[in-house]
Design a protein around this nucleic acid. Structure first.
Lengths: 178, 178
DNA sequence: TATGTCATGTAACTGGTTACATGATTGC
DNA sequence: GCAATCATGTAACCAGTTACATGACATA
């Protein structure tokens, strides 16, 4: 069970929902997993090739279009479950925003406030998008929907916390300047 | 103003607080910036060497210990301000937890709940640590303290959101199983 | 004198992005 | 016929980690 990049998990996972081409895979990932995941072609195609060599996916004939459509095999499904069970070792934190704020005295109050406003705006926009997705998802009766919903409520919870923190922090900095 | 890795920002920033060796730099970064930043020796030493070549830092004689202590030069301070002003381009999101939950139907309810419990525990522990730091920081009257405080309140806000989301999600999954 | 900590550095590797090259198919 | 989109792939590069090699200094 060699630990391979999580790209494999994302690819097999997406194919477990529906067979598709590498190109469509990218679109599906950026579209549906976009707010917490990302893959580039430079990852997807090699990952697909390896997965095919390992027998986790197979090409299904598709006279219709150019390119090939991949579907998950039985052992691919097993592999996916195993990958999902592997512990998630989170990537080392590197938060450029907090790094800047930490040295805020060198950066200056005005620039810090501007950073915080950006956060507030981005978080608020994200909230609107998530609420839309939540509404769509609530209407589905697919058995996988409740799980996918968790990723949306996570996004909402964190975005709301960020927005409120940014607002609060702006007032704090404003008072400190007086 | 070639865009170099943010390591340079972290290193110059830390040296703007106090002159120190590469080794101490690492300890300072993991200790103080630890909850949102990380650097390894493999980054720090090359970064210091480049910064010295560029005239941003200089070695100060230190008969006491082995090794050399670096301090920020005037142009290093300028460079730091410029780096802090550069827009923060956040790293592409890759949240292994959400990836697993998204495919939760393949993973199984029990494993999902276990993931969520981990989140709850980790977030709760983090909250305790942050509250300690907050108390310490509130006692300081250093002019940089309010800025550093922002990074702590951010940690608290996000950790609290994660903890509450995890709890809520555990009940949701529990009900769904019935 | 052995152990632990302070200290510096490098080489190999990993995971990932970007930019590019190439071509098929579709719809106007 | 042309533009847009679908589609596949690779090469160069980048940031960062890990593991290792090396050695000084302090202290039990």
């Amino acid at each position: 069970m060699a630990k391979r990049s999580q790209t494999e998990t994302a690819v097999l996972g997406a194919l477990s929902v529906e067979a598709m081409s590498g190109y469509a895979l990218r679109a599906a990932i950026t579209g549906t997993l976009g707010h917490f995941w990302r893959e580039s072609f430079g990852q997807i195609y090699p990952a697909l090739a390896r997965a095919e060599a390992d027998g986790y996916v197979r090409r299904v004939a598709s006279g219709m279009t150019s390119g090939s459509v991949f579907e998950l095999t039985g052992s691919g499904d097993e592999r996916l479950r195993a990958l999902l069970l592997e512990p998630d070792e989170p990537t080392p934190p590197r938060n450029g925003l907090l790094l800047r704020l930490f040295f805020g005295r060198s950066l200056g109050v005005r620039a810090c406030v501007s950073l915080l406003r950006d956060v507030e705006v981005r978080a608020s926009e994200a909230l609107l998008r998530y609420e839309d997705v939540r509404a769509e998802l609530a209407a589905e009766d697919d058995p996988g929907a409740p799980f996918r919903m968790l990723t949306v409520t996570y996004g909402i919870a964190v975005a709301r916390a960020q927005r409120d923190w940014a607002r609060e922090s702006i007032t704090v900095l404003g008072e400190a300047r007086d």
